[in-house]
Write a protein that binds this DNA or RNA. Structure first.
Lengths: 256, 256
DNA sequence: ATATGAGCGTGTTGATATGACACATTTGAG
DNA sequence: CTCAAATGTGTCATATCAACACGCTCATAT
């Protein structure tokens, strides 16, 4: 361990010149008609439950580790899922990302050089909450699927990052059909519509939505139907990756 | 100066843990119906003109400098223009970005710690070649407006970065009207159409293009006309920022 | 058993946007 | 004064879009 006190002037200079680089992940899930984001809880003082601080999952990039690899590592540690939708969307480099003394306190606890500047590369990811349950297995800290509409104050500039992620997600959804990434493998059109409505922040007409999305041709209707619902059972659909790929290579447009 | 030889083990470790962070800029211009990119020429050996190596303009991020600020600094040094269209589009962190011995050789010449890993945050920028001439004033090295279709092998992973920039630019153009950023303040619809055609890589129908773009409402027709052309003079137009802003805040769509 | 509540599934019409398509005009150059 | 080159203009057929309402089916509650 190198604490600041033991560092030489040269070491200090090197640390100043070389910012740390981290990766932060905005992990989106969809549950009960709500868009959620996976937050990590840090108890600064185990006994004081008032001092709860939430942040996005993230970590320093390892030596010799690609940025994408680093993001996947963080995701896997948290969710133990490997093949996820994952996309880098922005790098945040404000020299004053440490916004208050609580942030600084936490950095002191976990970093070798807590005063060093940190530049973070942010990713967002879409996971199927329904299929895989959150598996904080190897991870020591508590996690929380927080509805994005109720996000509390987060550490550092994480609120800013989350907002940027939402904007990117919205743009992406208008250009590529990624909504199903948030749903179980088999889903109903109602669920899919809810995803679109939630992310785009609009209300859509059911009949128009069905027509539009089915005409794209990448949704495969199954024979199977919903079970155990207190109303008419909806037909289940699957995203048909193969057809999608072949349609996409045919230069087709998927703007919604 | 700290050469690797004089460094202690601790210093080495710090350098390893803390990658350098740089900003690279893909500066696009448009000239004679061609999309161009501003490259920098590095002569490793002043006498050997065979050893020409081109790269994107870029630099290490200064201590306490925001990423955007850093990008603007690089741009200003090269073009002496301040208010440019500038957009961050991706961070590249492959640990093996130094692709060959020429790269390494160059790093040796300009960096304190040439072996350190470098993570780069890439921006692209749109400039009006016509209005402002390239002013490499304060800049020692030679620059070249290279047609993107004829890009040579570039240093490091700069070809990859350039390609990604092109993709981002294409996406952006379909969503927001940024074509005029590449043209003089006053331009003809023919010029603008050429910009769209070049960036999108398609051929467009003149009448349909005019109808579509004029219906958006943010192009202000001027009384003035083109001069000195060996054919009918085209009417000049201006991008009307005010109208655009007010239309945009009205939630309108500008997809092309 | 039966009534209720909740979400499913379905088609038409009018308005708007789009792509395809051709020719006379104006200018500088030779 | 002829030529080459780019401007400017309208229609029609098609596709896309938004708006709109009601009967059906299931689980639950009574």
């Amino acid at each position: 361990m190198n604490t600041p006190e033991t560092m030489t002037a040269v070491e200090n200079r090197l640390v100043q010149l070389n910012p740390h680089v981290s990766v932060d992940c905005v992990i989106f899930g969809f549950d009960e008609g709500d868009l959620k984001v996976l937050l990590i809880e840090r108890n600064l003082d185990e006994l004081d439950h008032q001092s709860r601080l939430y942040s996005l999952p993230g970590n320093l990039v390892d030596d010799n580790e690609d940025l994408d690899t680093s993001a996947m590592r963080i995701l896997k540690e948290l969710t133990s899922i490997e093949n996820l939708f994952l996309e880098q969307f922005y790098a945040f480099g404000d020299p004053n990302r440490v916004k208050n003394s609580t942030d600084a306190q936490w950095l002191n606890a976990v970093r070798d050089v807590p005063t060093a500047r940190v530049i973070t590369v942010a990713y967002y990811s879409l996971v199927k909450i329904g299929d895989y349950q959150t598996a904080p297995s190897s991870f020591a800290r508590k996690t929380w699927w927080c509805p994005v509409s109720e996000t509390p104050d987060l550490a550092f500039d994480h609120n800013k990052i989350l907002n940027a992620a939402l904007r990117s997600l919205k743009n992406k959804l208008r250009i590529e059909p990624i909504g199903f990434e948030l749903l179980p493998k088999k889903f109903t059109l109602g669920q899919l519509q809810k995803v679109y409505e939630t992310i785009l922040g609009t209300v859509l007409d059911k009949r128009n939505f069905r027509r539009k999305i089915l005409n794209k041709g990448f949704l495969k209707p199954l024979q199977e139907k919903q079970k155990g619902v207190p109303h008419k059972r909806a037909r289940l659909f699957e995203f048909d990756q193969e057809t999608y790929d072949s349609l996409k290579s045919g230069q087709l447009n998927f703007e919604f």
